[in-house]
Nucleic acid binder design. Structure first.
Length: 503
RNA sequence: GGCCCGUUCGUCUAGGGGUUAGGACGCCAGGUUUUCAUCCUGGUAGCACGAGUUCGAAUCUCGUACGGGCUACCA
């Protein structure tokens, strides 16, 4: 049987980075096994739908290269892939469970449920459940007279709840955690079909996974505790359950708890793949794409957050990840999001990528109004790529390639500059403008002059660099001169020298 | 509170009865680059705690602590 996995986000907002990792693991398993990676939109909660969220999810997956084989807009023989469009399907299965005595109709109002919970709490029962102990005291098709219940059902009042067996151990195998057991007396009679006719996650999930022939359910750990309910539903329906794998959570960089959408702003990094404009809060959340990350680097970083290939390999192409991926190497404990390491991965990708391939993304990250031609930018890329971590850094860190420095490192200037140097700088300027403008020529000329006159390179060279760049960092000095051109170098030097005198 | 899951350097992790507990990020130092980055070399730092099993425990068992998840007509 061919492996079929699904990524099933609910379109209630942007795709969280943890969701991206879940999608990645699903994708990798599908590709490794030659199976299908399915996108299913779980939009059963009509109240929480957010406009644009589904498009955001798809755009994210496409940017990342995790393109679904089946899904809304991607084709496939098991559609529709939006649960809202499958609405009619679910009731039939819920009713079958009712007919078989494995589920029942309930008519309690929210107020009544609230009252029950409060009463139970007063009795000392913490977080009361709608369960075997309580259900005969509530209003449902089990406790009410048949005629009354039928009337309520006919009037469309009812919802459907799962009838949990009393005091029974339900076990299932989680590929990461091995055997996990829950006793049904700890489990509540979950609502599976809501008042509006929509299924809850639990029903929709089981029905769709079965109908879509899903073989492996790979999802976040938050689902582990409801898996017993799901296992029971498979049993009630006489279906074979898929293999379950629950992924550890991704935690905040520091402090307690799982990574949340606020952490991005708080720690100054992105927690979403793409920038997201939250219209309700009127807030913009940063995206990895906009922050100048390469999707391959992001994925490489993410794949190692909760999984390892069993050897020391860290830098992996998509093909290599696919080759090495296996569910049994997934780690059990939650992983902290390490911002520094994510940057390191991106830098590794930048350095390993050809200049030509970098051109388009670097161009896209340039601020508006900066004009330069492709070949110039390519040269800059070649000179800068091992000094930056993100696409936007080519401009911010290599600013001097695009305009004369607007400020200078005063401290470093004062350490070295005295007015006696002026005449030599004038001579150097002359040598530069007399040269052919190539880096080696200028280097020979300048260094030759300094040597001949027994002048300190450690004084002149850094000052020359500050004149051109404003600070003591960047690529080889003479390469910069060659890129800038003799004339520009001359202009910057005299401008800077004038400033040096004022210090 | 209850149930379930987890716990190896600061972080991501390898190791699953006998290892000098390995690697990576970060950090520190040195070298290269008369700058910065890259690169190279070295260093720093860890088995949550307590019992038990065993000749021997990071590894197995139990307990404790801590962390996390769930406990909705949300997913």
């Amino acid at each position: 049987m061919s492996v079929r996995v699904r990524f099933a986000p609910s379109p209630t907002g942007p795709l969280h980075i943890g969701g991206v990792r879940t999608a990645l693991y699903n994708y990798l398993l599908a590709k490794k096994e030659g199976g299908q990676f399915i996108l299913r939109i779980e939009d059963t909660d009509q109240n929480r739908l957010v406009a644009g969220a589904e498009d955001y999810i798809k755009e994210s997956l496409e940017w990342l290269g995790l393109v679904p084989d089946e899904g809304p807009g991607y084709g496939g023989d098991h559609g529709p892939y939006r649960q809202s469009e499958r609405k009619g399907l679910y009731a039939e299965y819920a009713q079958k469970m009712v007919a078989d005595g494995n589920a029942y109709y309930a008519f309690d109002t929210p107020e009544e449920l609230d009252k029950m919970r409060k009463e139970q709490e007063a009795l000392g029962h913490h977080s009361a459940k709608y369960d075997a102990r309580i259900r005969m005291q509530m209003r449902n098709s089990l406790s009410l007279a048949k005629e009354e219940a039928d009337k309520l059902i006919a009037s469309g009042e009812g919802i459907i709840r799962l009838k949990m067996p009393d005091n029974e151990d339900v076990s299932f195998v989680d590929l990461v955690r091995e055997k996990v057991t829950f006793n049904t007396k700890e489990l509540d009679d979950k609502v599976i079909l809501k008042k509006d006719g929509m299924p809850t996650y639990h029903l929709a999930n089981v029905v769709d996974d079965h109908l879509m022939k899903i073989t492996h359910v790979i999802r976040g750990e938050e689902w582990l505790s409801s898996t017993a309910h799901h296992v029971l539903m498979y049993r009630f329906m006489g279906w074979t359950a898929p293999q379950f794998t629950h992924l550890p959570l991704i935690l905040k960089p520091t402090g307690k708890g799982k990574l949340s959408k606020r952490d991005g702003a708080k720690f100054g990094f992105a927690v979403f793949p793409l920038e997201w404009h939250d219209k309700k809060e009127d807030e913009i959340y940063a995206g990895f794409r906009e922050s100048g990350f390469d999707p391959k680097a992001l994925l490489n970083f993410l794949v190692l957050l909760g999984w390892n290939p069993g050897n020391d390999e860290e830098l992996m192409s998509m093909a290599r990840m696919t080759e090495l991926f296996s569910l049994d190497k997934i780690v059990k404990s939650g992983a902290r999001f390490d911002v520094d390491k994510s940057k390191w991965f991106n830098q590794q990708y930048l350095m390993a990528t050809a200049d030509e391939a970098l051109l388009a993304p670097v161009k896209a990250a340039m601020p508006q109004g900066v004009i330069c031609d492709d070949s110039y930018l390519m040269t800059v890329i070649g000179l800068m790529k091992e000094r930056v971590t993100k696409y936007g850094d080519f401009y911010t860190e290599g600013n001097f390639f695009f305009s004369a420095p607007s400020s200078y490192d005063d401290k470093q200037i004062k350490k070295r500059y005295t007015a006696e140097l002026d005449s030599h700088f004038a001579q150097i300027d002359i040598l530069i403008s007399a040269s052919d403008g190539t880096a080696p020529a200028m280097e020979t000329a300048v260094k030759g002059y300094l040597t001949d006159n027994e002048l300190k390179m450690g004084v002149y060279l850094p000052l020359l660099r500050i004149m051109l760049c404003g600070e003591l960092k960047g690529p080889d000095l003479f390469q910069i001169m060659a890129v800038l051109g003799k004339d520009e170098v001359g202009e910057r030097n005299s401008k800077a020298l004038a400033y040096f005198k004022t210090l």
